[in-house]
Structures are given as structure tokens and as C-alpha cells.
Design a protein around this nucleic acid. Structure first.
Lengths: 268, 268
DNA sequence: AAACTGCCTTTACGTAAGTTACGTCAATTA
DNA sequence: TAATTGACGTAACTTACGTAAAGGCAGTTT
């Protein structure tokens, strides 16, 4: 279904003579979402920020839509951090049924700490063209070993991810289709907002209805029906790959959405 | 729905004069499931085992069936480790719909590391009478700070828990009722086996069908129908609170069950 | 311009699962 | 012995959701 790892070095511009430019003069803003997110979860020391920025800028890669970054069964020998684009974690059954178990947005981590387990229990795919950075296992281990705030930030990242997955479980198990899709849209908007990808209550919706169906545990047809219902109810506008939530409070009510599980407000 | 914390000191026998017996003479076996599990996830140093044993034996508590150990919104100021009994993590919607997002068995940890987040995003309830041990935040932090193997074991515990939740997501989203219940039974047997709670392919099934329904995202009625189907198919016998899987391979096939996500085989 | 492709949309129909309402039975309690 | 309770079991009915098949439409490719 998905092809693998045709990623290439990207993002760190060459001076022309084959040498990397010094860090001060190249574009550091592309790794900013990661720094911002980690720093919101756990205040980072200045040294931690700098050393992490260095490590990130050296491993920048790209992936095309549909490409697997890592697949179930693969050993985890590096960690990947999302710089731009939409990704998903998913699992499949032998007969092809697929369930997306989480989305991954800029600033988030694909597999921080997962490398304590022998192999991946799930796959991660790019749903759009994606820019990410890859830090090798040893490098990452020495980064977190030398700075406690960094280690804790990555741990928080893992824990928030876990909390989101629990919310998805109740979404799949106990909400009806209408609530389920409404909930997903609420979550997407609220997760994209801190990354600056929301204007008003609008964001791009670059994924297919098939993907949305796999995320909500519905068939494509029923997902489409449900999107029509949401449109008809006047809660959302979805066209030209843009989602606009016209009445966010009403949508949250309909979805039984309460955002605390996202841990959007910092603690330490 | 559940009442709170009527737990009392238990498990550490008094000499009669109000003093604790020395550790060497009291029953250490009750904390054994935790040591065994953590050690299987990550080989523990002897010192780590001893200091953890001490900490555990001092905080032993009991809870009755139906009682919440901790509820959504509570701050996390200690960690709890299960010594005996069945517990569950669950979330509820405002209108009372409940989804169990995971079971907790002896040896497992309720909230290791969760205390990096401000408050619980879900609740934990005893489904049977339960014995557990509670280690205060500061004590736990100093334990893991002084021993790397212990810190890594608890992190692994968190990661395995996360992997199980992903499998539950695909169970809820993509398996039909028959497969779903079959999968849950497979998982229960395989998680209880390393704790010595399985004989042949039989174990106690101390929870109500309501609980099983909340774990599989079904109504009680439909769960019951599905259990009847499983019985009729000859795959299981379930009576007198005892589950016997008569053909485990066939049940695993029917459930599309593959146990790798449970990480039953050690790595480090 | 024709053909093709990917994605969205719609219809018609069947089935799996929810709901409501009563059963039974065994274990308490009076 | 009767009444009470909690869990399991069953039936009749309703509904939400899945499946199959086909049409629309914009963006490519030739």
C-alpha cells in the first residue's frame, strides 16, 4: 500500500561548494514547531534548545504523501520529529482493514522513547508531503541524558500522545458517527491552533475522506453521509480542501468534546 | 457511579506491639508480580529490586470492587502498582456512556510517569477486590533517579500500555463484535499467563458482562449475544465465572489476534 | 478533445448492532 | 417461605451503519 523511505536530504541549504552553512546563517525557523511544542510541555534550558536545534537541522528529510516513514515490525533506531505536513499512526489487519489510531502534526514526535521497545507495533505514514527530521538513536540518547528538561519534555510528549489515544478509544467505542466526526474535527482544529495552522476557525483539510473514515472507524460511504449531515446542520463548511467550523461551541457540544486531554496549557 | 478511596492499610502484618516486622521476615511474595514484570521488561539491578520492594511493602492498600482508585481530573501525587485483582482504566461521557480503555492486571502500573501531566485524563477503578501498593511521588522520583534500569523499566511499562491501547483502537474501530470479543479474551489469557493466573487455557472471569460490553464498545445485550455465539462455535466455555478457551489457535484466528503488541518476550 | 484518474457523492439494499422489555436463576435477606 | 437483588439470557422491534454499484467532476495525460 505504501512504499518506503525514498526520503532525501533537504532543508539545510548548501553554500554551493559542498559545505554546510554555519548554523547562525541558515533557516532555523523550520524546526521551530518542535521547540515550541516541547517548551510548552516542559520549559527547556537554553543549552537543550540549542543542542536539539543543531541535531534537528542536520537530519532534515522529506517524504511524499502515502509514504511510510516506518512500518510495523521495523526496529526503532532513530527518532523522527515532524516539521510540516500531516502524518498518521495506523495499524492494519491481515485482510486489509485499516485503523488510523492517531494523527501527527508539526512539532510532534513520531517515536520518542519508543526505541526502548524492540520493534514498532504500528506504522507511521505521511498523509501529505511531509518535512521531518531524523535523529539517530545514540545522538538522541546522549541529548536526553545530558539534559533533564529535554528528557521530561519528550516523556510528556509520549504521555500526551497516550492520552489522545485513550480519547480516540472512547470516540470509536461510544460515540455515534455524527459525534465521532464532529469530535475529530474539534480535535484537529485545537491541535493545529498552537502550531499556527488555524485562521479563525478554518484550517486546511488535506486528507481524503478515506483517511477520515479510517480514523473514525467508519466506511467511506457512511463518513461521507456524516459529513453531509454536519454540513446540513450548519456547523461546518468543508470544500476546496478547507475546513471551516462555523459554530465551534455548537460543534463541541454535539461532539461531547472537552479539550483537557490535549494538555494544551503548559504545566512546567 | 463509583465511590472513592475507602482504602485501608493492609498486607504488612503488625507484630502486635504496633511495630512493623523487619522486612526479611514478612511476606515479600505479594509484591512479586511487580518485580517479575518490571524485570521482564528491563533487567533490574539487585539494589533496584530491594529498594523497590521496600517502598512497595510500606504502601500496601486494598480497594473494593467498583471503587475508583483515582478519577479523571485528580492530581497525580503518587503511583500505584497492582498486586492482585482486576482493574480498568475508563473514561465517561457526560451522559453516562462509559468506555473501558484498558484492563490492569497484577504486576502492572496504574500511573507510572503520568504524574508529569497535571491531572488524570481518565479514571481507574477496581473491577474486583484489589490489593495494590502506593508510592508517594517524591519517593518514586528518587527511586527512579538513582537507578537507570528502574527508570527504563517503568518507561517500558508505559510504552507497552500505549501499544495495548493502539490495539484496542483497531479492535473498537475495525473488528466486528465476534472478532472483538474473541480478541479481548485472547488478550486477557495472554496477559494473565505470565502472572500465573492461567491454568491450561482457563482463567477466572470475575467481571460482569456490563464491564466486557464497556471494554468492547458494545451494548450488554449484544455482548451477551456474541458470547452465546462464541459458546455455540465451540471456541470457549464461560460459566461459573471461569473462562476456558477450548481451541486457542482457532480463537486467535477468528480474532485476527497477533500477540506481538503485548511485548511478552523480554528485550533488555 | 478524448480518455483517464482520483476523489467526492448518491442510491438502494442488507445486516449488524442498539433498545426496550421481560424472562430465568442463584444468592441474599427477612 | 416469601421477597429482594444482581447477573445472565431471550425476543421483538428499530436504527445505524456497511456494501455494492454507479454518476459527477476537476485535474491530468495523450
Amino acid at each position: 500500500m505504501h512504499d518506503r523511505h525514498s526520503s532525501q536530504q533537504a532543508g539545510v541549504p548548501y553554500t554551493g561548494g559542498g559545505q554546510l552553512m554555519p548554523l547562525s546563517t541558515i533557516d532555523r525557523s523550520q524546526v521551530d514547531p518542535v521547540i515550541r511544542r516541547l517548551n510548552a510541555l516542559r520549559t527547556l534550558s537554553t543549552e537543550a534548545r540549542t543542542s536539539l536545534e543543531y541535531a534537528m537541522l542536520e537530519g532534515i528529510q522529506r517524504a511524499g504523501a502515502g509514504e511510510d516513514l516506518i512500518s510495523e515490525g521495523d526496529p526503532v533506531d532513530s527518532i523522527r520529529l515532524v516539521l510540516s505536513g500531516w502524518l498518521c499512526r495506523y495499524k492494519t489487519l491481515e485482510d486489509g482493514r485499516r485503523q488510523i489510531v492517531n494523527f501527527l502534526f508539526p512539532g510532534e514526535s513520531c517515536d520518542a522513547h519508543a526505541f526502548l521497545l524492540p520493534v514498532m507495533d504500528h506504522s507511521i505514514a505521511a498523509m501529505t508531503p511531509v518535512v521531518y527530521t531524523e535523529i539517530k538513536r545514540a545522538r538522541f540518547e546522549s541529548l536526553v541524558a545530558t539534559d533533564r528538561s529535554l528528557a521530561e519534555a519528550f516523556l510528556c510528549e509520549t504521555l500526551v500522545n497516550s492520552a489522545i489515544q485513550r480519547e480516540w478509544a472512547i470516540n470509536l467505542g461510544r460515540r455515534v458517527a455524527f459525534e465521532r466526526v464532529a469530535h475529530l474535527f474539534c480535535e484537529i482544529i485545537e491541535r493545529l491552533r498552537p502550531v499556527g495552522m488555524v485562521e479563525g476557525n478554518s484550517c486546511v483539510m488535506p486528507v481524503t475522506q478515506m483517511d477520515l473514515a479510517d480514523a473514525t472507524g467508519l466506511s467511506v460511504v457512511h463518513l461521507n453521509r456524516t459529513v453531509q449531515e454536519l454540513r446540513a446542520s450548519g456547523l461546518i463548511v468543508l470544500r476546496d480542501r478547507t475546513l471551516t467550523i462555523t459554530d465551534l461551541d455548537a460543534l463541541k457540544d454535539a461532539a461531547l468534546f472537552s479539550p483537557s486531554y490535549l494538555q494544551l496549557y503548559r504545566r512546567g
